[in-house]
């Protein structure tokens, strides 16, 4: 209970808010800053989420690994027949697409309720909203870590090894991580305010799965394949699939991916700055 005099003289933490002059941008940036500085909290919460989700299960999150392996095997055998492609060339495409798509879809679905599911904490403790978004990103990253290695296993089995272009995976995954955070903030907020957006998001993702070359290969579109970069999901997928399967991916898809990412980031940031202080009333 004793506080030395020196500490009392120190500058006190000050919380100042003036509704006439809200300084929304300053506060939003401070929120982001505080959220990143306390990343350990988000990480601890994400690990807790994973542990609690598989509480009592013997192999826990490795169930995801197993079911993904089964799915790749099943779909690989079926669609290589349907598309009349040999397994050697089809499997590397399928395993990468399917796993990355699942990571993306899980991320988006989780982002939609990353704030509304944290309502108890948001209304009781003053925490940066960034912490909740980061928690969602970390949670999905941990989940992804349980399926992504399967890609290597399949590559080893069919003997497909990418060249030096595999280094492009680093910027690819980094951009995906930034997008994951932007999506968590944006969808998290908008779904907290409008409860109908969540189901819409689910439907959009389902539709996008068929419109995006996940199971089918882009070559099947023949000359129409030039329109593919218009599909943002395709470009996101290509940032991982390009380096691993397609010799790096085309410059156009990379440019499109970066373009979409910047737009998403900008929208999320504007939204965050404008509405951050309303979230406590929304959740």
């Amino acid at each position: 209970m004793y506080r030395p005099a020196a500490m009392q003289q120190a500058v006190l933490p000050t919380y100042h808010i003036d509704a006439e002059n809200p300084d929304r941008r300053g506060r939003a940036l401070a929120d982001l800053g505080a959220g990143f500085t306390s990343w350990r909290l988000a990480w601890a919460l994400a690990r807790l989420d994973l542990r609690n989700r598989y509480r009592g299960s013997v192999i826990g999150p490795f169930w995801v690994t197993l079911s993904m392996a089964a799915m790749v095997l099943g779909l690989g055998l079926l669609y290589s027949q349907l598309f009349q492609m040999d397994l050697q060339s089809y499997l590397p495409h399928l395993v990468t697409s399917l796993i990355v798509w699942n990571v993306l879809a899980a991320m988006v679905a989780d982002a939609a309720n990353c704030l509304s599911s944290a309502d108890g904490v948001i209304r009781q403790l003053r925490l940066p909203l960034t912490t909740h978004a980061l928690r969602c990103v970390f949670r999905n990253a941990l989940n992804a870590a349980h399926t992504l290695p399967l890609i290597l296993v399949v590559f080893a089995i069919v003997g497909h090894w990418p060249g030096i272009e595999v280094l492009l995976l680093i910027p690819g995954l980094a951009v995906l991580a930034v997008n994951a955070l932007a999506v968590s903030i944006f969808l998290g907020m908008i779904c907290a305010r409008f409860r109908d957006i969540g189901p819409i998001v689910t439907n959009v993702m389902q539709m996008a799965f068929f419109l995006t070359p996940v199971i089918w290969k882009p070559e099947l579109l023949k000359e129409n394949a030039v329109w593919l970069p218009l599909n943002p999901f395709y470009t996101m997928l290509e940032m991982v699939r390009g380096p691993l399967v397609e010799g790096g991916g085309s410059l156009l898809t990379w440019a499109a991916a970066l373009g979409y990412s910047s737009v998403l980031l900008a929208i999320a940031l504007v939204f965050f700055i404008r509405f951050r202080n309303r979230v406590a009333f929304w959740v």
Binding site: H16, D18, A19, V121, Q124, L125, R126, F281
Partner: peptide, 26 residues
């Protein structure tokens, strides 16, 4: 505690705040 932001007016709090509002929070 800084959880709800006001729609009008000003608030200035100097000092480190500890809030015991909800026992089960967190």
């Amino acid at each position: 505690a800084g959880i709800y932001e006001p729609v009008a007016g000003q608030l200035e709090v100097h000092g480190e705040v500890g809030s015991l509002i909800d026992p089960a929070a967190g």
